[in-house]
C-alpha cells in the first residue's frame, strides 16, 4: 500500500515538475521600451492597417504562421482574449508571416478569427521587429513603444495578461503630473 502511495506521490511530483517546466510565464517586460517599428500592411479583409494609426491605445502585435503548431495552439485563446480586450479598447493585430492570402483566409475561417489578420508575405516586418521565432508577440504602449514581448505561445485570455494590458493603457504617474 505504502509502495503504491509512494509511487503515486513520486509520479505526481514528476508531473508537477514537468508541468512547471513547460508552463509559459507572464509577458517579458522590455524596460528600455524601444520604439515599435511602424508598418503598413494589407489585411485579409482588404483593409490597410498602419500601426501608427493606433497611437494612444495598447496594441498587441502577434507574428504567426498557419503551419506553426504553437501558433495554432494559441489562436483560440487569442480570439477569446480579443473579445474581452476590445471592450477595454485594447487592439490586436495578428500578422501572418510568409503565406498566401488564400491560405491565411482559409485558416481564419476555420478558426473563426474575427480580429484583424494582416499579411507579411516576404517576412520583412517580422525581421524588422527582431523576432527570433514564431509565434512572437509584442505589446505596444499608447506612446508607440514596445513594452512587453512574448516568445512562444501564451494563454492570451488569462486575467493576468488582461490586467497587464489594462495597466499599460492607464496614464503613468509622470504623465499625469506633467
Amino acid at each position: 500500500m505504502n509502495l503504491v502511495r509512494g509511487a503515486w506521490n513520486w509520479l505526481l511530483l514528476m508531473g508537477l515538475l514537468i508541468a512547471t517546466t513547460a508552463a509559459a510565464g507572464p509577458l517579458t517586460p522590455l524596460p528600455s521600451r524601444p520604439q515599435a517599428p511602424d508598418f503598413q500592411l494589407k489585411g485579409i479583409d482588404d483593409e490597410t492597417y498602419r500601426l501608427s494609426d493606433y497611437r494612444g491605445r495598447v496594441v498587441v502585435v502577434n507574428f504567426w504562421a498557419t503551419w506553426c503548431p504553437p501558433c495554432r495552439e494559441e489562436m483560440p485563446s487569442m480570439q477569446r482574449a480579443w473579445e474581452r480586450w476590445r471592450q477595454a479598447e485594447i487592439e490586436l493585430l495578428a500578422v501572418n508571416v510568409g503565406e498566401s492570402e488564400d491560405e491565411v483566409f482559409a485558416f481564419a475561417a476555420e478558426y473563426d478569427l474575427k480580429f484583424p489578420v494582416l499579411l507579411d508575405p516576404a517576412g520583412r516586418e517580422v525581421r524588422r521587429w527582431g523576432a527570433i521565432g514564431l509565434p512572437s508577440t509584442f505589446v505596444v504602449d499608447p506612446e508607440g513603444r514596445v513594452a512587453y514581448r512574448a516568445t512562444g505561445a501564451r494563454d492570451w485570455d488569462s486575467d493576468e495578461i488582461f490586467r497587464l494590458l489594462q495597466a499599460l493603457g492607464e496614464p503613468r504617474t509622470e504623465d499625469r503630473e506633467s
Binding site: G25, T28, W67, C68, G98, E99, G123, I132, G133, A150
Partner: peptide, 27 residues
C-alpha cells in the same frame, strides 16, 4: 521560391536564441 525560403527560415530553430523566464522556442 521566396515564400518557401521564408517558411524554411521561420520553421527552423534560430541560430542564436535568448529567452526570458517562461519563454520557449521550437524549431
Amino acid at each position: 521560391p521566396p515564400a518557401a525560403l521564408v517558411a524554411f527560415r521561420w520553421s527552423t530553430f534560430p541560430w542564436r536564441v535568448e529567452l526570458a523566464p517562461g519563454e520557449q522556442m521550437r524549431g
